[in-house]
Design a protein around this nucleic acid. Structure first.
Lengths: 190, 190
DNA sequence: CCATTGTGAGAACGATCATTCTCACAATGG
DNA sequence: CCATTGTGAGAATGATCGTTCTCACAATGG
């Protein structure tokens, strides 16, 4: 039927999503053209459009991919620190601090994309909300007051991006400290 | 020299900024064309470009205008409530809640514009930072811990926009309550 | 009344996009 | 070997933009 180079469909998809992740996150979805993603990924326009029938679909694929990798990253980071005896809330803040300090940090991809209403479809909105809901649910598994914590974290992410500084995360930590009291200052429950 | 209709330069500027405020805030700066601003404001392209030599300048003018009107709005709201005996921190949250509930609410114009890196010049970045700094300074005049409060507020604004809900502001209020204790629960100092 | 000058309306220009199409080729099935 | 079919490279298409330009007019100064 059609075995020609059909094997590397997965590779092509990975390459496309890797390029999308780099370019969309760094410059925003509307400022990046599909041709640029072709140039960076090496995946031809034809294949790109066969995998993602429109740019909106490509953005949707990117959001889904980014959600999975980012959540997995956070869960790993927090798990490692709590395994070392760090209290969960502290573990979350330590992980966040590391992210905010990284040179490629440009804020939350989902918040940023939400701000670009130009091409924000209903499907994208739902992906963004689902990400934020998932973060809150994850926080709920390790801490009390997940909603409050999520508000504090989003505020810190946004301000860190605007001010290009890690100081907002320290303000955020102070908020959490007031909120959680000694839930922050001890190992989980040993 | 050149009195022809030179009188209404100010009116034209106001009309242009009013249209920009409506369109840029609602749909984002990159999704709105200069022609759309002409159509809504009735100000001709020629005049638009004589007042703002480029779209970036128009965006800059809008950010400046929005900063002034928004800060003036907040200061008035907070002053009224504190005059009625409401504690400053509560007054800030009550004002915010009113804003988040308004039908045209679409998040913070400055955070949203910051997320649109496509056409974000150094001048725009500085206007955005200046706005956030000004908010913190205003909070410092009426409350202690302005940095922490600003983080909480930005988090609530972002989440309210994403979730189209006022619940995040209640989470934010709970954070502030933990942070400020009885500074929130009484009239200023009577 | 005439020369001048600022103006509005919108055409024109040049660039960029998202998306589709063409063409030549490579690999397969018979 | 040949017909077929999926493919890459990139040209073509049609739309949209930011910005500038043209042209005709309206109001002024002399």
């Amino acid at each position: 039927m059609s075995p020609v180079a059909t094997q590397d469909i997965e590779q092509a998809r990975d390459a496309a999503l890797a390029a999308a992740d780099d370019l969309f996150y760094r410059r925003g979805t509307s400022a990046v053209s599909v041709v640029e993603i072709r140039d960076m990924s090496g995946v031809s326009l034809r294949r790109l459009y066969s995998m993602f029938p429109s740019k909106a679909d490509l953005i949707g694929g990117w959001l889904t991919h980014r959600h999975e990798t980012w959540m997995a990253w956070l869960e790993t980071e927090v798990a490692q620190r709590t395994a070392d005896g760090v209290a969960p809330v502290e573990a979350v803040f330590d992980s966040m601090t590391e992210w905010l300090k990284s040179s490629e940090f440009r804020g939350c991809a989902f918040i940023n994309t939400h701000a670009e209403t130009g091409e924000l479809t209903a499907e994208h909105e739902e992906l963004i909300r689902a990400h934020k809901r998932a973060l809150i649910e994850f926080l709920a598994t390790t801490t009390t007051r997940p909603n409050e914590l999520a508000v504090i974290i989003d505020g810190a992410i946004v301000q860190a991006a605007v001010f290009k500084s890690t100081r907002p995360i320290e303000s955020a930590r102070a908020c959490a400290s007031a909120l959680f009291g000694n839930e922050m200052r001890s190992a989980p429950m040993e």
